[in-house]
Simulated scan of single mutants.
Amino acid sequence: MSENIRVALADGVLMVAMHRPEKKNALTREMYAGLAEAIERTAADPDIRCLLLTGTEEVFCAGNDIADFRKPRPPEDPASPGPSHRFYFGLAQLEKPVVAAVPGLAIGIGCTMLLHADIVYAAPEARFRLPFVDLGLVPELGASMLVPWLVGKHRAAELLLLGDFFDAAAAERMGFVNRILDRAELLPNATATARALAAKPQEALRLTKRLLRPQETPALLARMEEERALLAERLRAPETQAIMANVLKPKR
Rank of each mutant, 00 (worst) to 15 (best):
A219M: 11
A219H: 08
L162Q: 11
T208V: 06
T193R: 15
R206I: 13
M174A: 05
A171M: 10
R173F: 07
L221E: 10
R213C: 06
R213I: 11
L161K: 14
R173C: 03
A219G: 01
R210F: 11
E158L: 08
R206M: 07
L212H: 05
I180A: 07
N189K: 00
R206C: 06
A194W: 07
N178L: 09
A184I: 01
A169G: 06
L159V: 13
P201A: 04
E216V: 01
I180Y: 01
A192I: 02
N178M: 01
P214N: 10
V177G: 06
L159K: 06
L197S: 04
P214I: 13
A170Q: 12
A156W: 03
L181C: 12
R155T: 15
A170F: 00
R173V: 11
I180T: 04
R213H: 12
N189C: 12
L159R: 11
A204D: 11
E225Q: 13
A190V: 03
M174F: 13
A219N: 00
A199M: 12
D167G: 14
Q202N: 01
P214G: 04
L197N: 00
L186N: 01
H154K: 10
F176P: 07
K200Q: 15
L205E: 15
A168P: 03
G152Y: 09
R179Q: 11
L212R: 14
P188H: 05
K200S: 10
Q215W: 15
